[in-house]
């Protein structure tokens, strides 16, 4: 902009190579896949009515999920859509952990590892509780 940069400023840290593109792809595909399941579930619900496995609540027995998907249960599709959406940030943080680990950035491996641990705790509380 004007004049040379002041000399005492340290060089800007570079992000791990490819990490930003990986983030972009994870977010885009996560939303796309989730949106597809939600739209299909919505259309199935409109066509068939709501007499499915889960009724109107968000809890679905995981062991019966694939069967319900095969049977075209709208709630199963909506449930998977929501789960994919909620899992997208978890995948994104996992990619970040991998990216910082690959460049041996110990501070950010700790930081992203902590965030991932919080998300997995949240998942564990949800599944168990």
């Amino acid at each position: 902009m004007s004049g040379p940069p002041s000399p005492e400023l340290p060089a800007l840290a570079a992000d791990p190579p490819g990490l930003r593109d990986a983030f972009g792809h994870v977010l885009r595909y996560g939303v796309l896949v989730s949106g597809l399941f939600l739209v299909v579930g919505f259309l199935l619900a409109a066509a068939r009515g709501s007499t499915g496995l889960a009724g109107s609540t968000g809890r679905l027995p995981l062991d019966r999920l694939s069967g319900a998907l095969g049977a075209g249960d709208p709630w199963a599709y909506l449930f998977v859509g929501v789960v994919v959406l909620a899992a997208t940030p978890v995948v994104r943080v996992t990619f970040a952990l991998g990216g910082f680990a690959a460049v041996r950035d110990r501070a950010y491996v700790l930081i992203t590892g902590f965030v991932l641990a919080v998300l997995l705790t949240s998942l564990a509380i949800g599944v168990v509780g």
Binding site: T57, G81, P89, L119, S122, G126
Partner: peptide, 24 residues
């Protein structure tokens, strides 16, 4: 997204995510 996911996963399995409301 990460902030909300930390909360949403808890709500999801607590049974508060009512799909008929959430989907639309």
């Amino acid at each position: 997204g990460v902030t909300a996911a930390a909360g949403a996963l808890v709500y999801l399995f607590a049974g508060d995510v009512v799909l008929a409301v959430v989907a639309p």
